[in-house]
Design a binder for these strands. Structure first.
Length: 676
RNA sequence: GCCGACGUAGCUCAGCUGGUAGAGCAGCGGUUUCGUAAACCGCAGGUCACGGGUUCGAAUCCCGUCGUCGGCUCCA
């Protein structure tokens, strides 16, 4: 149920690693938009509190070059705006940035000027000189405004001073100088500014100092740099390619989904071509879950406030829920109730506890499912009980967080809640993990990261339910299940759900945004707050453990992900339009033949269309190819006479004629097997 | 939510420093009868996101709102 969570970048690794010393945020270490594999590597190091200077010195050549480019960027900005104050300027996965505090709002129009200054600095080929100084010397320079500056200034280098404060006392402090520019910096750098081969400024955005909302917003100027012009050009060409796979672009081109202002931001509507994909995914989930002993349930989209009070969601998450609606008749009932109480009459039938006038759109399905668990007396013989629903939820994601289909406000989840005894936990938890892995295999997803999120004991009672013992026990239980099953995972502290530890599976969109596509969560808190019980063998009422899981995430996000994963070239079983019949000419007999094939395909539930337009065959093929129709049956007189079709497959071209029966049989077989 | 950029026909985009909108594709109507990635002709289509303001005159300048995008922050 949490799959809508996207890993908070700020917390994801860097700031945690550099906690206590932003000085050298840029040195070595994981980079912001690391690819999946790189991230796996870097996340495994998350437990390290801080890097040693030696570790920082292990910056790769390209990071060194980009870090140097960020100094050159700062140099250039100072040439134009000497009063600029700088914070941090690290290399990141695809380039570098420098955070600058400046009254002038830097816009892309300024890039040309800044780049011109940068080129001058590179042409001057100044050496990068390292200088170790005492803390006092560094502070003195900072106070004179001489850090991240070309000269002494009236205003102190405030961010640099703050950074010095955070350098551990036993650590050496170093400065780097290129030309007139001196910066507080742990390095390392390339030898000379001239070693920066090719660079380009890309964008400017804002960022809070040290990533903290309470700190001032700085302007973050992004750029990228490479050893050679060719590498730079290749990089931009690669970006263009990635843009072509962007699900928002393909979603439009392939007529998959739309957003509409009158419907609202973050509320996608699925056109038939995407609805079909959603239905195929549901079919898959239902088959899989049926075989795994799940039972399907259905619950409403809204519930009274009391439900979310009971579940404990409200205090933690009301900000992320749509505001409640009030029903006039409930208000009236409450008023009548109050009047009767005052006048000493018997209270109305409205129970005080449930007498809420507010209704919420549900942001999660678990409370409804817990109510279904509680609806019947449960025995240990009923467990594990697995309640599944493609539940529709609404979450009020902040406007700036919306992102195509990946981050939306209405979502349909492949949700289920599993209730079990402690003895059953390991097997159930493992089975859920197995389910993901099987799905990933089916879709050919191999770039993902399993994250095991645990709680931070210092936040018990705030971010996490105050049950220290239960936290400890379930986390140990989960960790041991993970270890025993040999699944690769990384542990991330302080990111658990409020009710228990969780695993989520992280993936990346083509443009590098990270998000969870699946989740598996332990819940020991809600069964208590809902007073869920089962009668055990020993005739004692016990509280079940609950697992929340959503291996296919939400339709919205999973389909968004699949669009990019397949670049719109869906396998036949998922393909919005599986077969298009293209006739050569419009001879009535030929049309009849083509239509009979269409009828046969549809009778077998194949999503088939026919193009009878007056376009030439090349035109019809072009249109079908552009829509990425999986298979084309090209039919002319020759085919008709041989009771055949000419098969053309998107991405494979013309496969030649096949007997009609054979061609259809192959299609059916491929769909049945969900071939990739 | 915050900072910045952007918002012209269904789609992709043009429209210089203000003089009441234009192309290609898609759509529709014809003609064409074509064997593996675009046949030809014509027609229609826009309160230039919305609301104010400046101006004789605003798609163009200013302000606000909404939305999208890029970041930041957040995310059950």
């Amino acid at each position: 149920m949490y799959l809508h969570s996207v890993i908070p970048r700020r917390k994801s690794l860097r700031s945690r690693e550099w906690n206590g010393g932003e000085t050298a945020t840029w040195t070595g270490g994981p980079t912001r938009r690391a690819s999946g594999r790189e991230r796996v590597k870097s996340l495994t190091r998350m437990s390290d509190d801080r890097k040693s200077l030696e570790e920082r010195a292990q910056m790769t050549d390209i990071e060194r070059l980009r870090h140097s480019a960020s100094h050159v960027l700062a140099t250039a900005i100072l040439k134009i705006w000497p009063e600029a104050q700088f914070a941090a300027g690290p290399p990141v996965e695809n380039g570098f940035y420098y955070d600058v505090d400046l009254p002038h709002r830097i816009s892309p129009e300024d890039f040309e000027n800044i780049e011109a200054e940068m080129k001058k600095e590179i042409k001057a080929n100044h050496p990068f000189e390292r200088l170790e100084v005492s803390r006092d010397e560094a502070l003195a320079l900072g106070k004179k405004g001489r850090l991240a500056a070309l000269d002494e200034r009236s205003a102190p280098s405030k961010y640099k001073l703050d950074i010095i404060e955070n350098i551990p006392p036993d650590e050496k402090i170093s400065l780097y100088r290129n030309g007139d520019f001196i910066d507080l910096c742990a390095g390392p750098h390339v030898m000379r500014t001239g070693n920066i081969g090719a660079f380009k400024l890309t964008t400017v955005a804002s960022a809070y100092y040290k990533g903290d909302e309470k700190n001032p917003q700085l302007q973050r100027v992004y750029g990228t740099a490479f050893k050679t012009k060719k590498e730079l050009d290749d990089y931009f060409a690669m970006l263009e390619e990635a843009k072509k796979r962007d699900h928002r672009k393909l979603g439009k081109e392939l007529e998959l989904f739309v957003f509409d202002d009158d419907v609202g931001p973050g509320l996608p509507m699925f056109l038939p071509r995407a609805a079909v994909i959603a239905e195929e995914l549901e079919k898959l989930a239902k088959e899989t879950e049926f075989a795994a002993g799940y039972q399907r349930v259905r619950t409403p989209h809204i519930a009274r406030e009391s439900l979310y009070k009971k579940s404990g969601h409200l205090p933690y998450y009301s900000d992320s829920m749509f505001p409640p609606m009030t029903l006039a008749e409930d208000v009236e009932a409450l008023k009548r109730d109050a009047l009767k109480r005052e006048s000493g009459e018997t209270a109305s039938t409205v129970q005080p506890f449930n007498a809420s006038t507010k209704y919420y759109l549900k942001a999660m399905n678990c409370p409804h499912h817990h109510k279904l668990f509680a609806a019947l007396p449960r025995s240990y013989r009923d467990l594990p009980l697995r309640l599944a629903e493609y539940g529709t939820c609404y979450r009020y994601e902040k406007s700036g967080e919306l992102f195509g289909l990946m981050r939306v406000r209405s979502l349909q989840m492949n949700d289920a809640h599993l209730y079990m005894t402690p003895d059953q936990f390991e097997a159930e938890f493992n089975a859920v993990n197995e389910m993901y892995l099987n799905y990933f295999k089916l879709f050919g997803i191999d770039k993902y990261l399993m994250r095991f999120s645990t709680h931070d004991p210092s936040k018990l009672g705030q971010k996490f339910v105050d049950e220290p013992e239960l936290w400890k026990r379930t986390e140990e239980m989960t960790r041991s299940v993970l270890k025993n099953s040999g699944i690769n995972y990384v542990e991330v502290p302080n990111e658990a759900a409020f009710y228990g530890p969780k695993i989520d599976v992280q993936a990346w969109s083509v443009i590098g945004r990270e998000f969870s596509i699946a989740t598996n969560q332990v819940d020991f808190a809600q069964p208590r707050s809902f007073d869920l019980r089962y009668k055990d063998r020993d005739n004692i009422d016990k509280i079940p453990i609950c697992i929340h899981r959503a291996p296919l995430g939400t339709h919205e996000r999973f389909i968004g992900f699949l669009i990019e994963h397949y670049a719109g070239n869906f396998p036949l079983w998922l393909s919005p339009e599986q077969v298009r019949i293209l006739t050569i000419g419009d001879d009535p007999k030929l049309i009849d033949y083509a239509r009979s094939i269409l009828r046969e395909l549809r009778a077998h539930q194949v999503r088939a269309e026919i193009d009878e337009s007056s376009d030439k065959i090349n035109g019809k093929i072009q249109r079908a190819e552009q829509m990425k129709v999986h298979t084309m049956f090209v039919i002319g007189k020759r085919d008709m006479e041989a009771d055949a079709v000419s098969v053309r497959v998107h991405g494979k071209g013309n496969l030649g004629p096949k007997l009609r029966g054979e061609a259809i049989a192959e299609i059916l077989q491929s769909i049945k097997e969900r071939r990739t």
